[in-house]
Amino acid sequence: MALNPMDIYKLLPKTNCKKCGEATCMSFAFKLLNREKRLEDCKPLYEDKKYERQRKKLEEMLKPLEEATETGLIVNEDLCVGCGNCVVVCPVHVEKDPKGAAVGNGPTIDDPILRVEDGVVKVINMQACRRYGKNRVLCVVCRENCPTDAIRFLEG
């Protein structure tokens, strides 16, 4: 299920033509996954007919990523019981919401990353997650403390 840059790379033109602004197709693949680039930035893929099948496959493959620009972290709502462990452990919440999520309550800030709504966790503000953006770290804290494995990440 998890996307990895190698699978993306395999379907790119692999010519390292730099038209996307990246030195190599491989680094473009990484940036795609990071959502710092969009597939359309690889012009040859769209201009050259011979890449059409690969492009279609890539589009298919990256679809979850499109949805994930807002919800890079995916919650399986059927598994979530709304225990709030993930909300309380998230280090970003701990820092920003010392009187709310940090001490076990529902978030008191307006833009938490995660919040329990109608009994299940919803992703509200993915941009604040430590896994995303330029200085990302591979945080897995919320997933690690979910009793039902309801949380997973696109990138594994």
Binding site: C83, G84, N105, D118, V120
Partner: peptide, 14 residues
């Protein structure tokens, strides 16, 4: 919307 209640709690309110 019901915020912060777990699934069991939400069922009562909802």
């Amino acid at each position: 919307k019901i915020f912060n209640a777990c699934r069991r709690g939400e069922e009562i309110f909802g």
